Amino acid sequence: MLDQRANVWILSHPLAFAIRVIKGFRANQGLLLAGAVAYYALLSIVPFLMLVVVALSHFLDQAELLETLERYLGLLVPGQSRPIVAEVAHFLENRELITWVLGITMLFFSSFAFTVLENAMSVIFKHRVEIRRRHFLVSAVLPYCYILALGFGVMIVTLVAGTLEVMGEESVWLFNYQWSLNGVSGVLLYLLGLMGEILVLTSIYLVMPVGRLSIWHATIGGVTAALLWEVARHVLVWYFSTLSQVNVVYGSMTTAIVVMFSLEIAATLLLLGAQVIAEYERVGQGQEAAAPKPLRTEPPTV
Rank of each mutant, 00 (worst) to 15 (best):
A16T: 07
L69V: 12
R82H: 08
A6N: 03
A41Q: 06
F91K: 05
Q80W: 11
Y72V: 11
H13M: 08
Y72F: 08
V88D: 03
G35H: 07
V8H: 14
A34F: 02
V52T: 15
A34I: 10
L76Q: 08
A6W: 13
I10P: 13
R20V: 02
L43V: 07
L92W: 04
G30Y: 04
W100N: 03
N7V: 14
V8L: 12
V52K: 02
A6S: 05
A55M: 15
R71L: 15
V85M: 06
T68S: 14
R82V: 07
I84Y: 03
V52C: 03
R26G: 01
V37T: 09
T99W: 05
H90A: 13
P47L: 12
W9Y: 13
S12M: 09
L49Q: 04
I98S: 03
A86T: 12
T68N: 11
V37R: 02
V37C: 04
V85Y: 01
E87P: 00
W100T: 10
L92D: 01
A16F: 04
R95W: 06
E93Q: 15
I98T: 10
L33Q: 06
H58M: 05
F17T: 01
V8R: 15
I19T: 13
A63Q: 13
L11N: 12
M50F: 09
L43G: 12
V21P: 03
V88P: 00
H58S: 13
N28C: 10
M50P: 01
R20C: 07
L97D: 15
A27L: 02
G74D: 14
V37I: 08
L49W: 04
R26P: 00
V46N: 01
H90I: 05
P14S: 00
R26L: 11
V8W: 11
G24M: 00
V88H: 04
S44Q: 09
V37M: 06
A27E: 04
G30W: 06
L49M: 08
Y72C: 09
F25C: 04
P78M: 09
V37D: 01
L33A: 10
L31D: 01
H90S: 13
A63P: 01
F25H: 07
I84F: 08
I84K: 12
L11E: 12
A36Y: 02
L43I: 11
H13A: 04
A38E: 13
T99Q: 11
L11D: 14
N94K: 10
V8T: 15
N7W: 13
F91D: 05
R71T: 15
A36T: 01
F25W: 05
L42D: 09
Q29A: 14
A86H: 02
V46P: 06
L73Q: 03
L75H: 04
Y39M: 08
F17Q: 02
L56N: 07
K23N: 11
L42I: 14
T68I: 01
P14F: 04
D61C: 06
Q80K: 11
V85P: 00
V77I: 15
A6K: 07
G35V: 05
Q29N: 15
I10E: 11
A34E: 04
R5G: 00
E64L: 11
P83H: 02
Y39W: 12
G30K: 00
D61I: 13
L15D: 08
P47N: 05
W9G: 12
Q29I: 01
L60Y: 06
A41S: 12
G74R: 09
V53A: 07
I10H: 08
